Computed example of a mutant assay.
Amino acid sequence: MSQANRATVEKVPFSDVPANRRRGGEIRIGLSPRTVGSVSGFMGTVTLEPGDYVSEHYHPYSEEFLYLVRGNLVVTVDGVDIDLAPDEAVMVPIGARHRLVNHGSETALAVLHLSPLAPEPRLGHVDTEPQPNADEPTLHVGGSD
Score class of each variant (00 low, 15 high):
2 S>R: 04
3 Q>Y: 13
3 Q>S: 05
6 R>T: 12
7 A>K: 04
9 V>G: 01
9 V>W: 03
11 K>N: 03
12 V>L: 05
18 P>V: 02
19 A>V: 00
19 A>L: 14
26 E>A: 04
26 E>V: 05
30 G>V: 09
32 S>I: 10
32 S>F: 07
32 S>Y: 00
37 G>Y: 04
37 G>S: 01
40 S>M: 09
43 M>T: 01
43 M>N: 04
47 T>A: 12
48 L>V: 05
50 P>T: 10
50 P>V: 02
51 G>Y: 10
53 Y>N: 03
55 S>H: 07
56 E>I: 07
58 Y>I: 07
58 Y>K: 05
61 Y>P: 06
62 S>V: 01
70 R>K: 03
72 N>T: 11
77 V>I: 05
79 G>T: 12
79 G>I: 06
80 V>P: 14
85 A>V: 13
86 P>D: 13
88 E>F: 15
89 A>G: 03
89 A>W: 10
91 M>P: 03
92 V>T: 15
95 G>H: 05
97 R>N: 04
98 H>E: 01
99 R>W: 10
104 G>V: 14
111 V>D: 05
113 H>L: 13
114 L>A: 11
114 L>M: 05
118 A>R: 09
121 P>Y: 00
126 V>C: 02
128 T>S: 10
129 E>D: 06
131 Q>L: 10
132 P>D: 12
133 N>E: 12
134 A>C: 14
134 A>D: 12
137 P>H: 03
139 L>F: 06
139 L>V: 02
142 G>T: 08
142 G>M: 03
